[in-house]
């Protein structure tokens, strides 16, 4: 679906992107992660044919962004960062305008607009002036215009920035509901957003791709050679941690919390290739323990991210 090959973008003396390469397949939800100034928006703009790369090439559905921009634009939906959509227009006026420019034929237009308004929850505000809407609704209007042409590639640049927590949750839910039949690229610097919405992550820093991995693996720390999980174990033993430490597959075990005299929360660390849940289940079965809960160690997501960036800087 998307192939980004050795792409660089240079503005005068500023290297915004440096030799960036990655691929995305149909149905992928990719999180472009990185601190401010990492080059995420520049990459998004190249993908939307706003400008061409200085070096390298980008193909979307086999079409080159430099040579076949109009054909590509018919396949994409884009929601730029911090856009102030025509504040004087009414919601339906704007959507009608966007639908006309996206080439939606007259016969289907009304039905398409009604569907989009419904799916984006804009029914109550369809006749209101965009400038008078709350930020959450304005983001929805932005999202709805991106979806008008039922795009194969949806590009969302910081879709939840500036929203209050309930609006963030609503927007994430809305975006999650759009996935499946299309490729989605979400640019963000909010880490939980990536793990909640994406299946793949591309981390950018200072214009370089420093990591391309599965979101789950990043969350668990596997991307940086870490493999940790938390488990809640019910057992009669007093020396649970000692027993866990003696398991050859495990590198380390720590007691996190004593829930009650027979129930403990522990953190187990092992090599990346180790299947910790399987090894722990085997151990629990042999010792007749009860496993109340097993979950990946996601508390260290920010730490993992910072560690990746720090490694890159050093």
């Amino acid at each position: 679906m998307i192939e980004v090959k050795s792409v660089s973008k240079i503005f005068g003396s500023v290297v915004a992107l440096n030799n960036v390469s990655f691929k995305a397949e149909h149905g992928d939800i990719i999180g472009l992660l990185g601190p401010n100034g990492a080059g995420k928006s520049t990459l998004m703009r190249i993908l939307t044919c706003y400008f061409a790369p200085t070096m390298g090439w980008v193909k979307i559905d086999g079409l080159n962004v430099e040579k076949e921009a109009i054909k590509i634009k018919k396949k994409i939906g884009y929601f730029p960062e911090e856009i102030d959509i025509y504040p004087d227009m009414r919601v339906m006026e704007f959507l009608d305008f966007a639908a006309n420019l996206k080439g939606i034929n007259k016969a289907d237009k009304k039905q398409t607009l009604d569907q989009i308004v419904e799916s984006c929850g804009l029914g109550d505000v369809r006749r209101r002036i965009i400038g008078n809407l709350s930020k959450g609704y304005r983001r929805r209007v932005g999202l709805s215009q991106a979806l008008l042409n039922d795009p194969q590639l949806l590009l969302l640049d910081e879709p939840t920035i500036g929203l209050d927590p309930p609006q963030v949750l609503e927007t994430r839910k809305l975006i999650k509901g759009l996935t499946g039949k299309r490729t989605v690229i979400i640019s963000t610097h909010i880490l939980p957003e990536v793990t909640q919405m994406c299946n793949k992550v591309v981390i950018l820093n200072k214009g370089n791709v420093i990591l391309e991995d599965n979101a789950e693996r990043l969350e668990m720390g596997l991307s940086m050679g870490m493999n940790r999980l938390h488990a809640r174990i019910e057992c009669p033993e007093n020396h649970l941690i000692d027993i866990l430490k003696k398991v050859p597959d495990f590198k380390d075990a720590q007691l996190i919390e004593t829930i009650n005299p027979r129930c403990f929360e522990v953190m187990i660390e092992a090599e990346v290739e180790t299947d910790i849940p399987k090894a722990l289940c085997d151990l629990a079965f042999s010792k007749k323990w009860v496993l109340r809960e097993i979950r990946p160690d996601s508390s260290s997501l920010e730490e993992n991210f910072m560690e990746i960036l720090t490694k890159e800087r050093s």
Partner: peptide, 15 residues
């Protein structure tokens, strides 16, 4: 340009 709608317009299939 100020409202960033120029970038949005440029993402539509128009010249």
């Amino acid at each position: 340009k100020k409202q960033k709608t120029f970038e949005l317009l440029c993402s539509y299939p128009i010249r």
